[in-house]
């Protein structure tokens, strides 16, 4: 056991943990808003569910990055990093996902809350609310791509 593995695991933990925090926050506020609408109009549950779930994807991207790291550093496969620097490299690779995931999920949650209001007042416009939310998602995707490329190429 050396610091290399520790740093790599710290990275994996941050990727899934911090991105997950963002998702939890985003899904949380969107669901709170949706619950208010559902008490009045339970029929809108289907449309609202989409908005509730949208900020949840960042946590999943975080999970992917995290698993990719675990697959490389000897937890689920691969070999443990030999030096602390190599471990820190994994940590660095996880940061885009952690940071990008957290902030995009949190603000996507807020967009979804306004989307819930759109669905409450004009259910026929729900797809526009969904598209608005997906505008924010792009930045999580970009972070994901960068983290992903970094992780798979460290081993190579």
């Amino acid at each position: 056991m050396n610091y290399g593995l520790f740093f790599a695991l710290l990275g994996a933990a941050l990727a899934v943990g911090v991105a997950g925090m963002g998702s939890a926050k985003g899904v949380g506020i969107a669901s709170e808003a949706a619950a208010g609408v559902i008490t009045e109009e339970p029929d809108k549950f289907g449309k609202l569910l989409v908005l509730q779930l949208l900020p949840g994807t960042q946590g999943l991207y975080g999970l992917i990055i995290s698993v990719m790291v675990l697959l490389n550093v000897g937890i689920l496969g691969g070999t443990a990093p030999e030096s602390a620097v190599q471990g820190l490299t994994y940590l660095a690779a996880c940061l885009p996902m952690a940071i990008g995931g957290y902030f995009s999920a949190a603000s996507q949650g807020r967009v979804c809350v306004t989307g819930v209001h759109i669905v409450a007042k004009r259910p026929e416009e729900s797809s526009k609310a969904i598209v608005s939310a997906s505008l924010v998602e792009l930045y999580a995707l970009l972070a994901f791509i960068v983290s992903f490329l970094m992780v798979i190429n460290i081993g190579a």
């Binding site: 994807t57 999943l60 992917i64 698993v67 970009l142 994901f144 791509i145 992903f148």
Partner: peptide
Amino acid sequence: LSYSRLMALGLATGVIAQV
């Protein structure tokens, strides 16, 4: 660049399924 999501989401489905 926005089309990079084609790759990212495709990857996401596959990797989560593997997990």
